[in-house]
Simulated scan of single mutants.
Amino acid sequence: MTSSLSLEEAAEHFGITVSPKRMNWLQDALDDELASITVYPAAIEAMRLLRSEGMAIGICSNLAQPFGPVLRDLFREVDGFALSYELGVMKPHAGIYREICHLLSVRPSWDMKASSEQVVMIGDSLRCDQDGPRTIGIFGYHLDRTGAGRISSLTQFAELLLEQQCRLKRGE
């Protein structure tokens, strides 16, 4: 996930010998998986809500190269992508978080008095999406779709951010 390799290149890189017939089967299986990827409806709604308030949206993901074009196609309206296979580092490495901030022209900071803006991130990994971003001043949140955590949907997350933004504007 830190190299831009095709399936055949990855097999070669790791010294795995795969027959042409098996490689074709693997490629077909990967192509089927890529074609089956869809966007959570809550993601679409969350992005709509955040966009309506003028918020920049980026995607920071640990991802293998074949998934990148699919992700970019599904999320054309996103302002920036920090993808591990393109950057050569994976979350929770600070470099991937710095890159998405650079692409979005934002500066993470814990000092809310210096600016009314903040950089926030959400994802399904405590280590990579909550704890990792916090090391550089990004407010990281954990998405727990099981309902056991504080935030269980991206729509809920967007509504929480908009509520916080309203409180900041009122000086609360």
Rank of each mutant, 00 (worst) to 15 (best):
R22M: 14
R22N: 14
W25L: 15
L26Y: 12
Q27C: 12
D28Q: 15
L30F: 09
D32H: 12
E33W: 15
E33T: 15
T38Y: 08
T38S: 11
V39C: 10
P41M: 03
P41V: 07
A43I: 01
I44G: 06
E45N: 06
M47E: 00
R51G: 01
G54E: 01
G54C: 02
A56S: 09
G58C: 02
G58P: 00
I59T: 05
C60N: 08
C60Y: 02
N62A: 07
N62V: 07
A64L: 14
A64H: 13
F67Y: 15
P69T: 12
D73L: 09
L74Y: 08
L74C: 09
F75H: 05
R76E: 10
D79T: 01
G80P: 01
F81P: 04
A82Y: 00
L83Y: 09
Y85V: 09
L87D: 08
L87Q: 08
V89Q: 10
K91W: 06
H93A: 14
H93W: 11
H93P: 04
R98W: 15
R98I: 08
I100V: 14
L104D: 04
R107S: 14
D111P: 06
M112F: 15
M112W: 15
M112N: 15
K113Q: 13
S116A: 14
S116D: 14
E117S: 13
I122N: 00
I122R: 03
I122Q: 02
D124L: 04
S125T: 10
D129Q: 04
D129A: 09
D129N: 07
D131V: 14
G132K: 02
G132C: 07
I138Q: 00
F139D: 07
G140T: 04
Y141I: 11
L143C: 05
L143G: 00
R145N: 06
T146S: 10
T146W: 03
A148M: 03
R150C: 09
R150Y: 09
S152I: 03
S153F: 05
F157H: 04
A158D: 00
